[in-house]
Simulated assay, not measured.
Amino acid sequence: MGSQNQLRVLFLCFIALIVGSSQAQLQEGFYAKSCPKAEKIIQDFVTQHIRNAPSLAAALIRMHFHDCFVRGCDASVLLNSTTNQAEKNAPPNLTVRGFDFIDRIKSLVEAECPGVVSCADIITLAARDSVVATGGPFWNVPTGRRDGTVSNLVEARNQIPAPTSNFSTLQTLFGNQGLDLKDLVLLSGAHTIGVSHCSSFSNRLFNFTGKLDQDPNLDSEYAKNLKTFKCKSINDNTTIVEMDPGSRKTFDLDYYRIVLKRRGLFQSDAALLTNSVTKSTITQLLEGSVENFFAEFAKSVEKMGRINVKTGTQGEIRKHCAVVNS
């Protein structure tokens, strides 16, 4: 009996080990022993470069968002196309920037600790550090994500909210990721430091319903200003417009004030006013302090950073972020 009990205990321990490795959780300081300088290397590089290119902060938080909405936060957005078209070639990702920036960070971390730190964690940490470098909120980033090995254009096209999304679509796509309406409002707040190409909203100015008309939900004076000085035709794919004019380098509450004035650039911005819950959430944020906004934003973005993460023995640690390991 004794030997049978020992075998049973060993078997249970073995099962627990397998389950534990596949269901491992993210944790703060995951690399404390395996690569203790990793987070500092990332932070220092980001801080050094965001000073000279503050618009990159918006690009990196957007990359993090687009990555997490497809297959979870697994750096699948970074993979190049091979036999199939990858996420980065999908329409929502054609204007995503920062791939070279992430590659440069990866090379620094690889030089310190080869094969240890995932590209997925680098995106997540760089997004946080870049927002902090602009004076925005700090949030905790538990690490231990592993990199995915699949990247699919169709999934990205179907799962990433588009600037033209209405409220129903936004609610569905956020809900699919376990995010609620409060998260929708708070994560939209990242537009406070963003810029957009005219092509992402020019239909609202020139051809909203296919009758060469203007979106009635866009402030008419603002629309006139945009058409006169910025987006002079529906085919303008190069001009860039600030999403939070006059305050785009500062992470603050101004984006929500602009939305309430019906001056949000995207249909997805305007959609926040079409639902009583999201509109009320905006009002409450504006009645509170910027510190409260920071704290609430931090909760939502940390929640987003946990979407369908791969941990333990899932996925891999890519040597180069744009290709799976051979």
Rank of each mutant, 00 (worst) to 15 (best):
V46D: 13
T47V: 09
T47N: 15
T47R: 14
H49F: 12
I50M: 10
I50F: 06
R51W: 11
A53W: 08
P54V: 09
P54K: 07
P54Q: 06
L56T: 08
A59G: 08
A59K: 04
A59W: 02
I61W: 07
I61K: 11
M63A: 00
H64R: 03
F65K: 06
H66Q: 15
H66G: 13
D67H: 10
F69Q: 14
V70S: 12
R71N: 12
D74F: 04
D74E: 05
A75K: 06
V77Q: 06
V77H: 00
L79T: 04
L79Q: 08
L79R: 02
L79G: 01
S81Q: 06
T82N: 01
T83K: 06
K88E: 07
K88T: 05
K88W: 05
N89E: 04
P91L: 10
P92W: 13
N93F: 02
T95Y: 14
G98I: 00
G98Q: 01
G98Y: 06
D100C: 09
I105K: 05
I105R: 04
I105P: 02
K106C: 02
K106R: 05
S107E: 14
V109D: 05
A111F: 13
C113V: 04
P114K: 00
G115Y: 05
V116Q: 03
V117T: 04
V117P: 02
C119Q: 02
C119W: 02
C119H: 03
A120N: 15
A120K: 11
D121E: 13
D121A: 10
I122D: 08
I122Q: 07
T124N: 15
T124C: 14
T124E: 15
A127S: 13
A127W: 09
R128S: 15
S130G: 10
S130H: 07
